[in-house]
């Protein structure tokens, strides 16, 4: 009988709703016990977290994350702490954070009140607006232009939710498509499957700049909402959050963040050596001066 135990247990649990599965004892303890911290990265969130020509994740958020990891090393006094990397998509990142597969997500994740009920966030490190990209030839620029068009966005993002809400509230009759990740969504516009791709503006700049013919595309001047980005961490883990927040605050106050910002937004970046030329916005300047982890968009307006 003993031999059957594991498959029995496995299967039994899969179908029995076991309430209160686990008690948190904190990410720091987990990292200390396993000697490893696992970072969730994205594959096409340029320039925050994406794969370079060697398929290695790099970016602005990754650099910030490594600073946080340094702080964790210091805090735990573990200079040889191993860093494991796991790819996440917008639809997998929150469950994977909750189930402990990743400890820190370094991507392009919007911090909002709704998500805060499931996960927690560090300090805001970027502020975006929703815009859309379309082929220049299709001459779409305002939100009203999207009426009746086929518009794609990425599954699991706040953008696709905004698009849905727009459709319901204003009776826009937009055909909404969802793609697995940003690269796939952009490809739909490139190949003519969708007229426009609604996404966080900075990601659109990154995708367009890295496309084969950047001159073919136009990013709308009209925008929808404002949203803050941050590093995602597990909920109810004040100890770990403090390490993250302190490390980020130190980064901002020391001015080091400007070097990192300059590296990713105002210089040539891999894989193609393109310069996004995206100066620090006023609202982000305010965040760097007074670090905040607020999920409220109005704070950043």
């Amino acid at each position: 009988m003993k031999k059957f135990r594991i498959p029995l247990l496995l299967a039994a649990l899969a179908f029995i709703a076991a309430p209160a599965l686990a008690q948190d004892t904190g990410t720091l303890k987990k990292v200390k016990d396993t000697g490893t911290i696992t970072i969730g990265y994205r594959e096409a969130s340029i320039p925050f977290s994406y794969l370079d020509q060697n398929q290695k994740p790099v970016g602005y958020a990754m650099d910030i994350c490594y600073k946080v990891v340094d702080a964790v090393k210091q805090k735990l006094n573990m200079p040889n702490l191993k860093v494991a990397l796991t790819a996440v998509t917008p639809s997998t990142r929150i469950p994977l954070m909750a189930n402990g597969t990743i400890d820190l997500e370094c991507g392009s994740t919007t911090n909002n009140a709704e998500r805060k009920q499931q996960v927690d966030f560090g300090m805001t490190y970027f502020v975006i607006k929703y815009r859309f990209v379309a082929k220049k030839a299709s001459k779409l620029d305002t939100i009203a232009d999207l009426k009746g068009q086929t518009v794609v966005s990425t599954a699991g993002t706040t953008d696709i939710k905004a698009l849905n809400e727009l459709n319901t509230a204003d009776k826009m009759g937009i055909n909404i498509l969802s793609a697995n990740d940003h690269a796939a969504a952009f490809l739909m516009v490139e190949t003519g499957r969708a007229k426009a791709f609604l996404m966080d503006d900075i990601l659109l700049y990154g995708l367009v700049a890295n496309s084969k013919n950047p001159a073919d595309f136009h990013i709308s001047s009209a925008s929808l909402g404002v949203e803050p980005y941050s590093l995602m961490l597990r909920k109810d883990d004040p100890e770990f959050k403090k390490v993250v927040d302190d490390a980020m605050t130190k980064l901002y106050k020391s001015g080091e963040i400007e070097t990192i910002y300059h590296k990713w937004f105002l210089s040539k970046i891999p894989p193609k050596g393109i310069n996004l030329d995206f100066p620090i916005s006023d609202s982000l300047k305010r965040v760097f001066a007074n670090p905040t982890d607020s999920p409220d968009p109005n704070v950043y307006k």
């Binding site: 599965l21 686990a22 008690q23 004892t25 696992t38 494991a84 402990g100 597969t101």
Partner: peptide, 8 residues
């Protein structure tokens, strides 16, 4: 006490 980390 907490979910075991299982990689992809």
């Amino acid at each position: 006490s907490q979910p075991v980390q299982v990689g992809a």
